[in-house]
């Protein structure tokens, strides 16, 4: 253990006592949220509050706990201790599932469904019957309209990511958690995704995006940085950049 450098002293700009104030509806509240996979802590107790309509960039090295945090907020992982709520509801509860859209780091598809069928299925699962127009628009925007009738399991990494993006956006949501969405995307794809994020923001949704993509970080007000499972920065994105966190933590080339 001593081989690993100690994380620097925490520099949390937000007063953590603020979190325990009277309940206001917030998109995401984590209270002393921690996770342990059995070989050391993956996420140290984390306090975080994401307001409605807020847009947050989540940065950190590989293994810094970003994915662990996001998966706990979706309910795909159970916290070892502490709690997390989505609009005041437990993750994985019906209400939370209705309002939260999760775009995972690894796209997952059915082997026997086309992109179009995936979109229809996802939309209908979320109670959206008038999905076709939206689906066509999303695919057009992402530049994969021509591939609508192909099986996404046979796609390249970048195309798969585009299909997964369309699936995350076809359904209604109030909070979107996104894990490394720019990986493998070409320039057009990145551009389209940034546009989609902007549309979601202007529609009032909250966004938490784990990414090193400067193009996104610069559009956010707030940046949260994790290192080795601990929060090391939570404040204005401009300040994060000034401190070199974005440049040091986020060298997009090293992400794979």
């Amino acid at each position: 253990m001593s081989r690993h450098p100690k994380p620097p002293a925490r520099e949390v700009s937000r007063d953590s006592s603020q979190v325990h104030e009277v309940e206001k509806p917030a998109a995401l509240i984590a209270r002393a949220l921690a996770k342990d996979y059995g070989d050391g802590p993956a996420l140290h107790p984390l306090d975080l509050r994401v307001e409605e309509h807020e847009r947050v960039a989540l940065i950190g090295h590989n293994g810094s706990g970003k994915t662990t945090f996001l998966r706990m907020a979706t309910g795909l992982l159970e916290p070892a201790s502490g709690s997390v709520t989505v609009f005041g509801e437990a993750p994985g509860s019906m209400e939370a599932r209705r309002r939260l859209s999760y775009l995972a780091d690894t796209p997952t598809f059915y082997e026997d469904l086309s992109v179009w069928e995936h979109l229809g299925y996802t939309a209908r699962l979320h109670g959206r019957a008038d999905w076709e127009q939206r689906a066509a628009d999303l695919l057009g925007q992402l530049g994969i309209y021509e591939r609508a009738d192909d099986l996404p399991t046979r796609f390249s990494r970048g195309l798969k990511q585009k299909a997964a993006i369309a699936m995350a956006f076809i359904r209604p949501f109030d909070l979107m958690l996104v894990d490394e969405p720019f990986v493998g995307l070409d320039a057009e794809g990145k551009e389209a995704l940034l546009e989609l994020f902007d549309e979601a923001s202007s529609a009032g949704a909250s966004l938490v995006v784990a990414t090193h993509e400067l193009g996104f970080v610069t559009t956010t007000q707030r940046t949260v940085a994790l290192r080795d499972g601990a929060l090391i920065f939570d404040g204005p994105s401009s300040q994060a950049k000034a401190r070199g966190l974005v440049a040091v933590e986020g060298t997009a080339e090293t992400e794979s």
């Binding site: 979706t74 309910g75 795909l76 994985g92 019906m94 209400e95 599932r97 209705r98 999760y102 995972a104 997952t108 598809f109 059915y110 995936h118 299925y121 996802t122 699962l125 979320h126 109670g127 699936m167 359904r171």
Partner: peptide
Amino acid sequence: EDADVRHVLLAP
């Protein structure tokens, strides 16, 4: 199926 967990169990 993996996709069932991701898409159906996370749906309302």
